[in-house]
């Protein structure tokens, strides 16, 4: 997902003058296109709907689905569905947060990783799972976290 500003502007412009109840669908569309909600987008959305930016941000932060930082090069999704939960995904999440020094919804300073909590990625048999840049890692344990992150750090270093 890249930052296609033009695309985003189109989406927002399309909703000019729409009712305030369209706020959430617009936020979703923009996030879909941009990968996150940027400051400019939030300000623009407020402008076309006649809402203060603080209100737009207030509504967006009310829901967990919205993020306000661009995705990292490797986007990590951690499943917090029932099966993963039972098998200890909470501890995995905690380790990820500690290791990356970010909360779900955030992106690391070096823009390498971003973190998202999802409800189920549909591979409950492999629980607990995380997916990193689209690759699924099964039967996660807190102990495996560093090792897996290092694989991707290595990849990034190679490319550099």
């Amino acid at each position: 997902m890249t930052t296609e500003t033009v695309n985003v502007e189109e989406i927002i412009a399309r909703h000019r003058g729409a009712g305030r109840d369209t706020l959430i669908p617009i936020l979703q569309e923009v996030q879909e296109a941009e990968g996150y909600l940027s400051r400019t987008s939030v300000a623009k959305i407020g402008e076309v709907l006649g809402l203060p930016a603080s209100k737009v941000y207030s509504v967006a932060t009310f829901y967990n689905q919205f993020r306000f930082q661009p995705l990292g090069r490797f986007h990590i999704q951690i499943c917090r569905g029932t099966a993963c939960h039972v098998k200890g995904s909470a501890a995995v999440l905690e380790t990820l947060c500690r290791e990356l020094e970010i909360e779900p919804g955030e992106t690391t300073r070096d823009r390498l990783f971003s973190l998202e909590v999802v409800v189920c990625i549909g591979v409950c048999g492999l629980a607990p799972v995380i997916s990193v840049g689209g690759n699924v890692h099964a039967r996660m344990t807190p102990g495996k976290v560093t090792q897996i992150l290092d694989i991707y750090r290595g990849k990034a270093a190679e490319d550099a």
Partner: peptide, 19 residues
């Protein structure tokens, strides 16, 4: 002016500015 509003929800909510 609406410089401030409630952000987040539940036990995490706070009054703050945009972003």
């Amino acid at each position: 002016v609406s410089a401030i509003d409630f952000m987040n929800r539940g036990s995490k909510s706070f009054v703050g500015t945009v972003f």
